[in-house]
């Protein structure tokens, strides 16, 4: 992959995080309390045993969470790749492969969490 496309991907995922992360925070505001704190509201264990938040039980919101997970992973691990290369003063193929492996694990594990929490599997 050319470095130009990596950079464009970095910008695109950054702007995608702005969108999906905004939705992610906005869903928390649905439950913003006027008495008590957000902790007591979001962490309440109602009759919904699997869904963490009642408002999250929505396939579109699950998809937006998935988008947030994937774009944040790409953005974060590309950033870490650049910072680590500048930290040790050269590119190291094993560091880049290791970062890719951790990122792939995070996407798979997070996708599983999203699917279970929204009762989609």
């Amino acid at each position: 992959m050319r470095e130009r496309n990596v950079m464009l991907l970095h910008y695109a995922t950054g702007l995608a995080i702005l969108l999906f992360g905004g939705i992610h925070i906005w869903t928390l505001f649905f439950t913003y309390p006027f008495q008590g704190t957000i902790w007591e509201t979001t962490m309440r264990f109602d009759s919904m045993p699997y869904a963490i938040l009642p408002v999250y039980r929505n396939t579109l919101l699950a998809l937006s969470l998935l988008g947030l997970l994937v774009s944040t992973t790409i953005h974060a691990f590309n950033g870490l790749r650049i910072i680590l290369a500048e930290l040790i003063g050269k590119r190291n193929i094993w560091i880049e492969r290791g970062l890719f492996a951790i990122g792939a694990f995070l996407v798979i594990y997070g996708t599983r969490t999203i699917l279970i929490a929204h009762m989609l599997v």
Binding site: R2, E3, R4, V6, M7, I82, A85, E86, R91
Partner: peptide
């Protein structure tokens, strides 16, 4: 300049 050590750094 379109390489890792080029303008993108």
């Amino acid at each position: 300049v379109d390489k890792f050590e080029g303008v993108w750094r």
